[in-house]
């Protein structure tokens, strides 16, 4: 029978590619809303040749689990950022999580469009990870504490929970605090019982985790401008048709723009809600924090892994 290969091809065409997108944020957080928007865009634009399933709240596993899964060839996409890529062997990428590297979001977006960033993306691709979109704002990372912090000196000796990576640990250490890595799920009780004195994250995450019920003081220090990225396994990405690849990256960018709009809106909303629920926002002199954070970029433990003059290169690239 001559026509059988053709029908086989046809049936393969009609069977949509299923892409699973996993992230740690909970339903209703800006990232989740924007991921829903992304799903909508992909499914519309691909005329049903691509189907997207969303898995919020780390249902499919942690970021690291998902990265291992995509390296094994699974058709998953996840949210990850510079600090993760540094731990996956692209050391220079970690600098984007350095304290006070960016002054404005514009600088972030200039950097993600720069040649330096393209180089880093290429290195990541060699490691089997394909960056799909880098224009997603995750938010300014602020600090919520159980005791008031009025000056950077007050941070001295305070145990602040940070994610488990060297960049963020050292980034907080230079401010004088005692960075304490801890599983996110244990943070609420640890704050309540005083095992730690604070944590840092974007406002929407702080509000959604209900940490303000047990920690009442907030400083808007914005120590990291956290943009985030979506990645997929290179093998999976290459298995898509060029058209599908284009749809994926294009819509990723568009959903990113949508994300950034609602991020600002929802961040303001979260701040209002935090205040309304009894959180005291303390005015700080941010310059003081910035000044102290500068030491980070000359710490030998940090710079030993970096390329020569990385700080200057990146600073130039974001202008």
């Amino acid at each position: 029978k001559e026509d059988s290969p053709e029908t086989a091809e046809k049936s393969e065409e009609t069977k949509p590619v299923v892409i699973q997108i996993g992230y740690g944020n909970n339903p209703g957080e800006p990232i989740d809303l924007a991921a829903n928007e992304w799903k909508k865009l992909i499914e519309e634009r691909s005329n049903g040749s691509m189907k997207v399933e969303l898995f919020p709240s780390a249902q499919l596993g942690s970021k690291n689990d998902l990265i291992d899964q995509m390296l094994a060839g699974d058709s998953v996409i996840t949210l990850a950022d510079g600090a993760f890529y540094a731990d996956r062997g692209v050391k220079d990428f970690g600098i984007v999580f350095g304290p006070y590297l960016f002054d404005t979001w514009e600088e972030c977006w200039t950097l993600t469009e720069s040649d330096w960033y393209k180089e880093q993306s290429a290195k990541l691709e060699e490691k089997g990870l394909k960056l799909l979109a880098s224009n997603w704002m995750y938010g300014d990372r602020h600090t919520l504490t159980t005791k008031p912090v009025k000056t950077v000196e007050d941070l001295k000796g305070m145990k602040i929970r940070v994610p488990n990576n060297t960049i963020q640990i050292k980034g907080f250490e230079v401010l004088g605090a005692t960075p304490t890595p801890m599983a996110f799920g244990e943070v609420y009780t640890a704050l309540q019982q005083g095992t730690i004195d604070g944590l840092e994250n974007p406002l929407t995450v702080l509000y959604n985790g209900k940490f303000h019920e047990v920690a009442k003081y907030l400083i808007l220090d914005a120590h990291v401008k956290n943009f985030t990225t979506w990645i997929a396994g290179t093998d999976f990405f290459n298995s898509l048709t060029p058209e599908q690849q284009q749809i994926l990256t294009e819509t990723g960018k568009e959903a990113g723009i949508y994300n950034n709009e609602i991020q600002e809106e929802l961040n303001d909303e979260a701040l209002e809600k935090l205040k309304a629920e009894g959180v005291q926002v303390i005015d700080i002199n941010k310059e003081e924090f910035k000044e102290k954070a500068k030491a980070f970029y000359s710490l030998p433990e940090i710079t030993k892994d970096w390329s020569e003059g990385l700080y200057e290169t990146v600073k130039d690239a974001m202008k």
Binding site: D68, A72, D87, G89, G128, T166
Partner: peptide, 15 residues
């Protein structure tokens, strides 16, 4: 196979 993958990609603990 998983261990081999981890060897190839050189995954190490964060700290």
């Amino acid at each position: 196979n998983l261990v081999q993958q981890l060897l190839q990609t050189g995954r190490v603990t964060n700290i």
